[in-house]
Design a protein around this nucleic acid. Structure first.
Length: 561
RNA sequence: GCACUCGUGGCGCAAUUGGAUAGCGUGUCAGCCUCCGACGCUGAAGGUUGUGGGUUCGAUCCCCGCCGGGUGCACCA
């Protein structure tokens, strides 16, 4: 039940619509005040009375029933108390019957949303800086799917540019097949790094020539490139499997090679293209932005050109209602320019393009630099977190079966969670100290809470105790706080989607786990006969809802750990 | 220089987009395992929300100035 709506429906206030009232209803800062509250300050203008008087009047006239048990005026607010038993019964019934679908919705039915995320570069290993786009994008993908949207995950591969000329030049100079196959993508990246260190004029020219050869369809150059590409894809596939990331399309930059000319033509037709210093640009001066470069003075296309072609292609192919670009805020200006150019081209759907910007990752001693070897590889982070998880489990629970499998869930979960817990715009300073610390507000805490709940449920099963929702039951404070947290989940998921913030879901998980642990300590679940069935139902519902929350983030829930 | 962005207890972060007494984690100190899993729980200390104005019944949130950090600003992606 939507309690805000219910309360709004029953408030008597002349000249104020139900929708307005519903929008005003909030949750008080402290549960001791009430469960919901209506601030009356905005009503003062319409009703021409002081907020305090309005609150008094509304509280007095509010029809109490089995749903709302109290309405009290305080400091210009009306505080409402929900009948605990009713809410608890409502929420638990819903969670236990909906199970994995609790929190899901059909609000997105018939709508398509494209999400461009992760977008790896060919021949570049994953480093810690690639984690955010991958797991934020992956979480948004699942969240929107959960809300009923048709979601299209796109890995916009970085597979175009003179860098691949350099790569081939480096490989031809120093590389060989055996080493590359043995060393994989890291060996290939080493060649590229070396090339950048040692390159002189001649080598640069060589690289440009190789890139030209790729472009002109030269067989050897393309075979090498394709080989690098397949090595990269099989490498990232391993990482994606660990992180539970999937894509529906791997159409990268190269895919748009033959789709840019029509875009340039269209820009020309619409009179948007201008020559400037030999290059073709779209002037964005009237919008306070630097020009958007479309063609270099040598006629070659640019990053923006391909993004224009990609957006148009995606609209044509998927007819999206929204298209998200999960890319670091470094590229704020780039996306603003591209979106503006599309708008100037008369694409009314340009408003549906959203740059989901997130913060950057640096190391304690400054920015990462692949060239200087100052880089933290993602697989190393994952491996170390999994090892740490294993050693903790081995120490605290040595007889546990499937220790490896569980350590994997815990360690990988910690890596994912670290990138999803804070608002995405925040910069992150990576350190192994923090990454390997599983205490406090972490996925490990949430998983531990789940394992604890599972354990109680297992014990109950042994004793033949059943979970049930009694007809009448008045939850105590701890039980009720937990119930309210559980009730918040569907709204939390929606808010996360609306604001493209997976952290809302992550924080909900921690908050709910905290409430469960308080409940767990203060209320013995199995002890008393009168409370046992309800408490088991509450435990079961918590485990179920937390599992849904973590699943949206791509994190698994072990039964034991 | 211009644009965007961030600034909240020692440290890392929240605050339902303008609401009530600014919350949580970590760290420090003090407690809690003959009692459902101590990767946990309870308590204490710790704040002029960078700073100065403004708008408002009300500002961590909105506007302006200043200070500090980050990012970006034409042929890389």
């Amino acid at each position: 039940m939507d309690y805000k709506r219910y309360i709004a429906q029953h408030i008597k206030a002349e000249g104020v619509s139900e929708d307005e009232l519903c929008g005003l209803v909030t949750v008080p800062p402290d549960a001791s005040m009430g469960d919901y509250a209506l601030p009356c300050f905005k009503l003062a203008k319409v009703l021409r009375k002081s907020p305090a008087l309005i609150a008094e009047a509304i509280a007095k006239d509010y029809p109490l029933d089995g749903v709302v048990s109290e309405a009290k005026a305080l400091n210009g607010y009306v505080n409402f108390r929900i009948a605990r038993g009713g809410l608890a019964k409502d929420v638990l019934t819903r969670i236990l019957s909906e199970g994995e679908r609790y929190g899901a919705s059909t609000m997105g039915e018939g709508k398509t949303i494209c999400i461009d995320y992760s977008s790896v570069n060919i021949a570049k290993p994953f480093h810690i800086g690639h984690l955010s786009t991958t797991v934020i994008g992956g979480a948004l993908y699942r969240i929107f799917k959960f809300l009923g949207y048709n979601t299209v995950g796109i890995n916009h591969l970085g597979d175009y540019g003179t860098q691949f000329g350099k790569l081939i030049a480096a490989y031809k100079r120093w590389g060989n097949k055996e080493e590359a196959e043995k060393g994989g993508i890291h060996a290939i990246n080493d060649l590229y790094v070396r090339f950048n260190e040692e390159a002189d004029e001649g080598m640069e020219a060589e690289a440009r020539e190789y890139f030209r050869l790729i472009e002109s369809g030269d067989r050897e150059a393309n075979e090498l490139f394709d080989w690098f590409k397949s090595l990269t894809l099989s490498y990232v596939k391993g990482i994606y499997e660990k992180l539970h990331i999937t894509f529906d399309s791997y159409a990268g930059e190269r895919f748009y090679t033959d789709k840019m000319a029509p875009v340039v033509e269209e820009l020309k037709e619409k009179g948007l293209l201008k020559e400037s210093n030999g290059a073709q640009i779209v002037d964005l001066e009237p919008y306070g932005m630097p020009p958007c470069l479309i063609l270099r003075s040598d006629g070659a296309s640019l990053y923006a050109t391909r993004d224009l072609a990609a957006a148009i292609y995606r609209k044509k192919t998927y007819d999206f209602d929204k298209c998200l670009y999960v890319v670091a805020y470094q590229q704020n200006l780039h996306f603003k320019q591209v979106f503006k150019v599309l708008e100037l081209m008369g694409k009314d759907w340009a408003k549906d393009l959203v740059h989901v910007a997130y913060g950057m990752v640096s190391l304690e001693d400054g920015a990462m630099s692949t060239r200087k070897g100052k880089v933290v590889w993602l697989e190393d982070v994952i491996n170390r977190c999994v090892e740490k998880a294993y050693s903790v489990i081995d120490e605290k629970n040595p007889t546990l079966e499937n220790k490896k499998e569980i350590a994997e869930k815990v360690g990988v979960g910690a890596v994912i969670f670290s990138a999803l817990y804070n608002n995405k715009i925040k910069d992150i300073v990576f350190s192994y100290d923090k990454a390997l610390n599983f205490d406090g507000e972490t996925s490990v805490y949430v998983q531990y809470t789940c394992a604890r709940a599972s354990s109680v449920l297992a014990k109950a099963a042994e004793g033949g105790y059943e979970a049930a929702i009694p007809e009448t039951y008045t939850p105590c404070d701890q039980e009720f706080e937990l119930v309210k947290a559980l009730a918040d989940f569907p709204e939390t998921v929606k808010a996360a989607a609306e604001r493209y913030e997976p952290s809302f879901v992550a924080r909900w998980c921690v908050d709910t786990a905290q409430k469960f642990n308080k409940f767990y300590f203060d209320c013995k679940i199995l002890q008393d006969e009168e409370t046992r069935a309800f408490r088991l139902a509450l435990t079961k519902a918590t485990l179920s809802a937390l599992s849904n929350g973590l699943a949206l983030l791509g994190i698994g829930v072990p039964e034991k750990m």
